[in-house]
Design a protein around this nucleic acid. Sequence first.
DNA 1: CCGATTTAAGACTATTTTATCTTATTTAAT
DNA 2: ATTAAATAAGATAAAATAGTCTTAAATCGG
Lengths: 146, 146
Amino acid sequence: MKVLSNASNYGLRALLYIVSRKKQGDAYVSLREISEELDISFHFLTKTMQLLTQGDVLVSYRGPNGGIALKRPAEEIMLIEVVKILEGHDFFDTCMLGLEGCDDCNPCPVHHLWKEIKGKVKHDFATTSLAMMGQRIVSENLRLVP
Amino acid sequence: MKVLSNASNYGLRALLYIVSRKKQGDAYVSLREISEELDISFHFLTKTMQLLTQGDVLVSYRGPNGGIALKRPAEEIMLIEVVKILEGHDFFDTCMLGLEGCDDCNPCPVHHLWKEIKGKVKHDFATTSLAMMGQRIVSENLRLVP
DNA sequence: CCGATTTAAGACTATTTTATCTTATTTAAT
DNA sequence: ATTAAATAAGATAAAATAGTCTTAAATCGG
Ligand code: SF4
Ligand code: SF4
């Protein structure tokens, strides 16, 4: 049951790496460091981070000591925003059987079941911030790599 | 948020079509009829149904008036069985960030969140039978096509 | 038996996703 | 100025998914 594309997977892990990184104080974190620490293809990660930069989640800076940084406080960036940028803005509104033009009045057989699940997923992603995750990663020493 | 492959999508819809079909009494339902009624590629559907036949959910019969039929009562076939055959038997045990070797003691940051969602999805699919869906389709006149 | 019907099986093509590679641009330090 | 460090951008390749087409095998009806 794969719900996130690799791009979202990498994107989320990269952001969580930034907010939970041991070595703080740097203005920017380099993509090379992230790709090595998280064992993600450097070039693929680059493209993913570009989307987040264009999507107003990150700022980037070129040149020596450059890299990426959160554009806004980690408290204000919810997981849902990241996923929407990387998967498309209708990601949380699609459906299980992929039929078209449906609503609660014109449902397919699994609609009631799916609506609940979808609602929970969307709610969870909408109420979880990078900051919350980051704190838990540090305090519970959670991992971001296999 | 696409959770099911097209094969599962088509497979579930085809089975639900069979159990809720207006014209009852036929021993077998032809794949041609299903593909036309549900607007699914005939050849693709054929391959999918073959998997379900091999997977003990369907029986098939060749020749005129042939087709496919449920191998067991619709009450005994849960959605989870169908999806497992078409997606792989570990479908409901995979995870969001795709890391390896994790369990509750060695989790990634989204594990607690994902575990709940995954549990609900698995439970829903495990407790919903084709018969239950079929009854609802008929009584509430639900649709299987766009 | 013969021909039509229908699933089975596998080869083939197309599309999307994922990954890699190459070149360009920006910036800092010397 | 020159060089090295770093992201940006786009071309290319590989892999996975989705869909199409062809041929084979089984079955029925006449
Ligand atoms: S009715 Fe609901 S679950 Fe079914 S296809 Fe439409 S949105 Fe998806
Ligand atoms: S800890 Fe849980 S959610 Fe995270 S990668 Fe492992 S199984 Fe998936």
